[in-house]
Design a protein around this nucleic acid. Structure first.
Length: 191
DNA sequence: TGGCTGATGCCCT
DNA sequence: GGGCATCAGCCAA
C-alpha cells in the first residue's frame, strides 16, 4: 500500500487494514483484527505523553512500523498513521496465516495447540512472524524490499463484515470503540 | 470455562 | 519504583 494510504485518520487506516496481507518475507497472513491508538484524547496511547525516545516513530511519517516491548517478553507491531508530525498508529492484533504456516508454528513452539492460535494476539503474531524491535522498529513498510510490507486484500472486505468493540488489555480510555475485527473469523483473538 | 497469577524487562516519573 | 496495548498454565467448578 502507498504512503497516502497511511496518511489518513487512524480509525480509517485501521478499518482499511482489515483484509490486507501482511508480508514478513518468509511468511505472510491476512490482517483480521486491529486496534486504533489515537493522538488526542486517548490516554491508552503511548503517544499520549508526547515524544520520547520510544514514541518518536509514532510522530514520524506514516507507513512505518512501530514495534514496542511489553510485559518483559513480548513485542507488539503497530503501523503508523496520520500525516508527519501527527501521532496515531494501528496495533495489529491477529492474522490468518496465508504462507509459511509451518515456520510460524515452529517459532511459536510447543505451547501451540491449534492452528488458529498461531497468531491470534499481538504477542503471538510477532513471535510467529519473527517481528522484533531490533529488526523492524521504524522500517518503512511502503518501500519495496522492506522486511515488512502490506498489500491490498486478496478478497474485498465489505463494511458489514467489520465488527467494532472496545480495546483489550488497557485501563485508561478503556471505553472507546477502537477495536475492529472481521466478523466470524476464527483467527481473531477474542469475539 | 473462566478467573487468577507468575514470568520478565523496559520505559518513564 | 510502578505500571504495562501479553500469554500460558493452573486451579476451582
Amino acid at each position: 500500500m502507498p504512503r497516502s494510504f497511511y496518511a489518513r485518520d487512524t480509525v480509517t487506516v485501521a478499518t482499511d487494514l482489515l483484509g490486507c496481507t501482511l508480508d514478513a518475507g518468509d511468511c505472510a497472513g491476512r490482517i483480521v483484527e486491529v486496534e486504533a491508538y489515537l493522538g488526542q484524547g486517548d490516554l491508552a496511547a503511548h503517544s499520549a505523553r508526547g515524544i520520547t525516545p520510544r514514541t518518536r516513530v509514532i510522530f514520524g511519517p506514516p507507513g512505518h512500523a512501530y514495534v514496542y516491548f511489553i510485559y518483559g517478553m513480548y513485542e507488539c507491531l503497530n503501523l503508523v498513521a496520520e500525516p508527519d508530525n501527527v501521532p496515531g498508529c494501528v496495533l495489529i492484533r491477529a492474522i490468518e496465516p496465508l504462507r509459511g504456516q509451518d515456520l510460524m508454528a515452529a517459532r511459536r513452539g510447543p505451547a501451540l495447540k491449534q492452528p488458529r492460535d498461531i497468531a491470534n494476539g499481538p504477542g503471538k503474531l510477532t513471535l510467529a512472524m519473527g517481528i522484533t524491535r531490533k529488526l523492524h522498529n521504524g522500517v518503512d513498510v511502503t518501500r519495496a524490499g522492506s522486511p515488512l510490507t502490506v498489500r491490498e486484500p486478496e478478497t474485498a472486505v465489505s463494511p458489514s463484515a467489520i465488527c467494532t468493540a472496545t480495546r483489550i488489555g488497557i485501563r485508561q480510555s478503556a471505553g472507546l470503540p477502537l477495536r475492529f475485527f472481521l466478523r466470524g473469523n476464527q483467527f481473531v483473538s477474542r469475539f
